[in-house]
Write a protein that binds this DNA or RNA. Structure first.
Lengths: 226, 226
DNA sequence: AATTCTAGGTTACATTATGATTACATAAAA
DNA sequence: TTTTATGTAATCATAATGTAACCTAGAATT
């Protein structure tokens, strides 16, 4: 799974350069020219690393990160700054940086530092990151939560597994044999009827009022998320 | 408590410079011109950080560190090198470096990087001076005390460790494998059931009346502090 | 349209898996 | 040593899941 890097830099040239290079290096990049939507994005996406310019017009990048740390957001941060004085670097580390790179920087070195920071901090958490969505259903694999229209719902392991398979095969009708094979691994010892019951239970949870019809039954074949 | 830094550099001028500056900065410095006695010192002294020149006459510093890592010596290492090519830096990180500084270096910056690496290394133990909070739970990392709603509670080392990990990962379900890896370091030799018992004991302490539900059990997955 | 047939829904119950609890053993600290 | 903390195993409690019996709706046949 791709790791997500959020970048904030008010210089659009540098931002583009970073976006291009980090994307090429296989990261999922979210670039911003200011901090306006950062909090929101952090709460919605599972971000693995933040690269932040320290000299932003509205707010000092260092202060912003300090604020994030106070809110118990401990995603690793690499500061990017034209200022290279010892005092600045020191301040950066104190504010919670994990590394500090001065402009102009060498892209290869930055990539290596990114790799090192990610390895150090995030190897376990980010292995299955990402958010899956279908209409107003959202599955956060990192937090292992499912929300529908923003509201959190209680859901079991099996139900999440079904939901994931349905979403990642949306548009295809999945027959019971397929579902047993992919969700219940030991399809041998389990009756096909079991799928019906499991589906009913899942439908009940994600759409108790029977209004959305997320999952449609295709008589004689199987189930479809269109 | 002074932290111990071991330095290996065959250039005696640089070695002296480092010894002088790091000592002034309050570290206990052990300088060597070659790797001859390093193994022995490591086994006798509690070294917190190694600063190693990559271009040593007898052996490549990178290879030496690789060897240490293979022997399960995981003391953080900062490489010092005249070589600054991307390829070299990459190789350094691959061999197990925690940071990489190219010569000629700025002493102030080096000091900051040392501080950062040490802080990372000791991060779990002492989040210097900081106070962690979650709802009405407050952990004072200096005093090693926990108060709930202002009232001091008796709590053990392990329980604090769990609480810290739960708080710094709030909003995310932590499975037993993760908890074992991060709290009990030698996850190999410990049963997953142990986590259940530890959690029960922690819950008992922080919420004896079962009213707050600070920590929620996610059946089939792990534990969540939301 | 009425009848039959069948797939799937629904419900109730059985089984299984997982976590909580307890008691005790062992390790660490005082 | 004594005391305290922590790990482990046995047992208990319950939520999650599987199964079977029955019900219903829609397609096929008449």
């Amino acid at each position: 799974m791709k790791e997500h890097i959020l970048i904030v830099d008010d210089d659009s040239d540098i931002l583009e350069l970073l976006e291009y290079n980090l994307s090429s290096a296989g990261y999922d990049v979210l670039g911003f020219l200011n901090t306006k939507y950062v909090r929101q994005v952090l709460s919605e996406e599972s971000v693995d690393l933040i690269i932040m310019d320290r000299n932003l017009p509205e707010i000092d990048g260092g202060l912003y990160v300090e604020m994030l740390r106070n809110k118990n957001i401990n995603i690793p941060v690499i500061f990017l700054s034209a200022k290279g004085s010892a005092e600045d670097i020191k301040d950066g580390f104190l504010k919670g940086a994990d590394d500090y790179v001065t402009k102009p920087f060498n892209m290869d070195e930055l990539l290596l530092r990114i790799k090192a920071v990610l390895k150090r901090y995030h190897s376990e958490l980010s292995k299955n990151g990402s958010v899956m969505e279908y209409k107003d259903i959202k599955i956060d694999n990192n937090m292992r939560t499912v929300t529908i229209d923003g509201k959190n719902i209680e859901i079991t392991k099996l139900e999440i597994a079904i939901l994931k398979v349905m979403i990642s095969n949306q548009g295809r009708v999945l027959d019971r044999e397929f579902l047993l094979k992919h969700i219940w691994k030991d399809s041998e010892n389990i009756r096909q009827k079991t799928v019906n019951v499991a589906m009913k239970r899942l439908k009940e949870k994600i759409d108790p009022l029977r209004q959305k019809e997320y999952i449609k039954t295709i008589r004689g074949v199987g189930y479809l998320m269109s």
